[in-house]
Nucleic acid binder design. Structure first.
Length: 470
RNA sequence: GGUCCCAUCGUCUAGUGGUUAGGACGUCGGCCUCUCACGCCGGUAACGCGGGUUCGACCCCCGCUGGGAUCACCA
């Protein structure tokens, strides 16, 4: 069977957004699943809107998503010779012609057509004039005026277009630069692309492109149009639906694997399975299970999936992703058992890596800042005795191991007659500054004897001061 | 407006000519418990409407309605 060759062709006019990421992902997954090739192509023929920053932003986003490409990036701006050559081919074979109709005249025509309720299409004024090249002439494709063009879409099925609906679209502007529908086809032909997976919004372009393939005597690729991703109000996804840029999700603490897991499941299914590792996705991805209807982007489900992936990622692997968030907070640490245990206490409690870094503060700081309300409630005279007794118990311990710690607490419970909860909460506040944290024994073990003892002493001091004041 | 596409819980979806229409997120209730989570158990909620075809349609066909896409010398 022929080797599958897919591509992702973003135009660098902004950051990589969710829809683009999903298109890239489906093409990448399909290529990887089929052991084919995935090509990156930058569609920058619009020299006015294309920027170097956008190109970099796209690379950055793909890198984060861990979507790699086998060929490219190819830049259309550097392929003009090829386009010129193909335009000439079309001119020579009579499939294209020069047109000198002015933009103003065309605009007027469009307006009129819209008023009558018809499709605003070029009327073919110059079609048979046999005009030669002049300064303001554009080049149009000579499209068939009757018959049908059918798109055999692997996702949507057959879609039939009446050729009379199509018009002689422009393939080269008056300055000689080629236009989108034309360059896409030339690129896909010359790059050997045989599978085109793209957004739904391209279906109306496809008959034009099919006609071009035929005029160029090239075999058609397999087309598949992915359903759109919409915002919560069922309209096209935009800023007001939340973050659009893919890298914004990286910065919010999402795992790339969680992000792609969500994106793929939005429009693709594998029975009832919701959670997929990257490898599993590559293994199980298929075109047949892609849905036909548009999906609404649901940030809450993405968040839940992120939590699942954080939970399932082994601590030693998670470090790589968590590190930037810890470093941003100024925490220094070395990879190893310490940070891994820290992760183990937090991974079931964190929905994002940012949450995790936020909650991990007490493991890294020298001093603890207390939640005001909690301090008022828990650092009171009745906490003095249990804290003092616990301090004695802990000081006597050589090693801070869970079993020993439990015994230490038990001893305090027996002496004071208090339940564990009554003792643990003041201790938790003393150690973390907060009323919620991982298990009391695990954090004591990780924080370590020196810091634990000093933090308990600090708390005792505060309680004493309060007593003195009152 | 023309053309094209789409239609199962609020959302993502599974599903078959005969099912108690399944799962996940959310939500509600409970259990677990040193706090918060995790986890576990349970509840909530869907086949858009109208015609056909058929012994029987959520499923097949038609229409309607609703939603989306697209109509550039942008991509």
């Amino acid at each position: 069977m022929e080797k599958i060759i897919t591509r992702f062709p973003p135009s660098p006019t902004g950051y990589l957004h969710i829809g683009g990421a999903r298109t890239a992902l489906f093409n990448w997954l399909y290529a990887r699943h089929m052991k084919g090739k995935f090509i990156l192509r930058i569609e920058d023929t619009d020299t006015v809107r294309s920027t170097r920053e956008s190109v970099d932003a796209i690379f950055e986003a793909l890198e984060w998503l861990e979507i790699d490409w086998d060929e490219g990036p190819f830049f259309q701006s550097r392929r003009f010779d090829i386009y010129t050559e193909y335009i000439q081919k079309l001119l020579d074979s009579g499939f294209a012609y020069y047109c000198t109709c002015s933009p103003e005249k065309l605009e007027e025509m469009r307006k009129k057509a819209m008023e009558v309720g018809g499709k605003p299409k070029y009327d073919g004024t110059c079609r048979e004039k046999g005009l030669g090249r002049t300064d303001n002439a554009v080049i149009r494709f000579k499209a068939p005026v009757s018959g049908t063009t059918v798109l055999e879409d692997v996702i949507k099925g057959n879609i039939v277009f009446q050729n009379e609906e199509l018009d002689d679209f422009i393939i080269a502007r008056s300055d000689g630069s080629p236009t989108y529908n034309f360059v896409v086809v030339v690129d896909d032909i010359t790059m050997g692309i045989n599978t085109v997976l793209r957004g739904d919004d391209h279906v109306m372009n496809t008959p034009k492109q099919i006609l071009l393939y035929k005029a160029l005597n090239s075999p058609l690729p397999t087309f598949g149009h992915l359903p759109m991703v919409l915002g919560s109000d069922r309209t096209r996804l935009s800023k007001r639906h939340g973050a659009m840029s893919v890298t914004a999700y990286r910065d919010m603490g999402y795992l790339p694997d969680a992000f792609i897991n969500y994106l793929v499941r939005l429009g693709w299914s594998y029975g009832d399975q919701e959670f997929f590792s990257r490898d599993e996705l590559v293994e199980k991805f298929s075109l047949e299970n892609i849905g036909r209807s548009a999906g609404i982007f649901n940030p809450e489900k993405l968040l839940a999936l992120n939590a699942d992936h954080i939970k399932e990622t082994p601590p030693d692997e998670l470090i790589k992703y968590l590190s930037p968030f810890l470093k941003e907070k100024g925490y220094s640490f070395q990879e190893g058992p310490f940070i891994e245990s820290v992760i183990r206490t937090l991974n079931a409690r964190s929905k994002t890596l940012k949450d995790m870094a936020d909650d991990a503060g007490f493991y890294f700081t020298d001093t603890v800042s207390y939640d005001e309300k909690a301090a008022k409630k828990l650092f009171k005279p009745s906490s003095f005795e249990p804290l003092r007794l616990l301090l004695d118990q802990l000081e006597a311990l050589d090693e801070f191991k869970e079993a020993d710690l439990e015994n230490a607490f038990k001893a305090v419970m027996e002496k004071t007659g208090l339940k564990l909860g009554k003792i643990a909460q003041p201790v938790r506040l003393a150690l973390t500054g907060k009323t919620a944290s991982p298990g009391i024994f695990e954090i004591i073990e990780i924080i370590g004897k020196d810091r634990v003892l000093s933090r308990i002493k600090d708390a005792i001091g505060i309680i004493k001061d309060k007593e003195a004041c009152s």
